[in-house]
């Protein structure tokens, strides 16, 4: 059976792991390579490294860090943050990243999805979407949640899939940082409508929240950050818990 994936997300700034509550209030939580290696030993199925300041400060992503990660860690990992061009992606993939996560620049220039899919294959193209539920609609936000667009989450996810995205990583801004659980209804709708894997993000606070998102939204993977970084939930313990609740995990 295909296992449900647990993905710790490491937000990176200046080569260090950080986590912001609702994208604000950033606090240092360690070295990305050490932390990533620790997670892989604990049973993490995949890792995401996001350069969270890259879009705003137009910083180029961290190729040297990616190489260090790839030479140390033997599970798949995705890198994202400030990716604007095919050239950025080429460099990151050749440095050992398995996938790239594209967010704002894909909304601004959806053609990049087609180009990535045609050049490197859909399997390495993760489209990250930050969206906020306001007056009955999920609006897509850019620049780490700072810039609202008129695009709707489900329309944008469809276009991304049609253009060749390999996975959708959806972060609910309403849930992110709250630790009150994932955005089940929106995730469920995404999982039903889309044919590509859906990664749930935003809101994980307890082990039951992971059970909920796998059982009730039927997503393929669940991502979280601070609860892992501060060891509020241990990945091994989480997987034992999910196994007992009859969810297939590695």
């Amino acid at each position: 059976m295909l296992a449900k994936r647990i993905i710790p997300c490491l937000d990176i700034r200046d080569g260090r792991t950080v986590k912001g509550i609702n994208f604000e209030n950033i606090k240092d939580a360690g070295d990305p390579v050490d932390l990533g290696y620790y997670y892989s030993c604990e049973g993490a199925d995949e890792l995401v490294f996001l350069d969270i300041t890259a879009t705003i400060e137009k910083r180029k992503t961290f190729v040297e860090l990616v190489k260090r990660i790839a030479s140390t860690i033997n599970i798949p990992f995705t890198v994202g943050g400030g990716i604007n061009s095919i050239n950025d992606i080429d460099v990151l993939l050749n440095s050992g990243a398995d996938k790239v996560s594209i967010n704002s620049s894909a909304v601004r220039n959806p053609e990049i999805i087609t180009q990535v899919a045609n050049t490197f294959g859909s399997q390495c193209c993760v489209i990250a979407i930050d969206a906020k539920f306001e007056e009955g609609t999920w609006f897509v936000y850019l620049n780490g949640g700072r810039l609202k667009t008129e695009r709707n989450l489900h329309d944008w996810a469809k276009e991304a899939e049609d253009r060749g995205a390999g996975e959708i990583l959806f972060t609910s801004m309403n849930n992110d940082g709250t630790k009150n659980g994932f955005a089940i209804e929106a995730l469920k709708e995404l999982a039903v409508k889309r044919k590509i894997p859906i990664i749930a993000s935003g809101g994980a606070g307890t082990m039951e929240h992971f059970e909920d998102v796998f059982k009730n939204a039927n997503v393929d993977a669940a991502l979280a950050a601070s609860i892992f970084h501060y060891n509020e939930i241990n990945i091994k313990t989480l997987k034992d818990f999910l196994r007992k609740r009859e969810i297939i995990v590695r």
Partner: peptide, 10 residues
Amino acid sequence: EKIPHTGWNN
């Protein structure tokens, strides 16, 4: 089912 087959399988 979801295609590509993505993830961990025994």
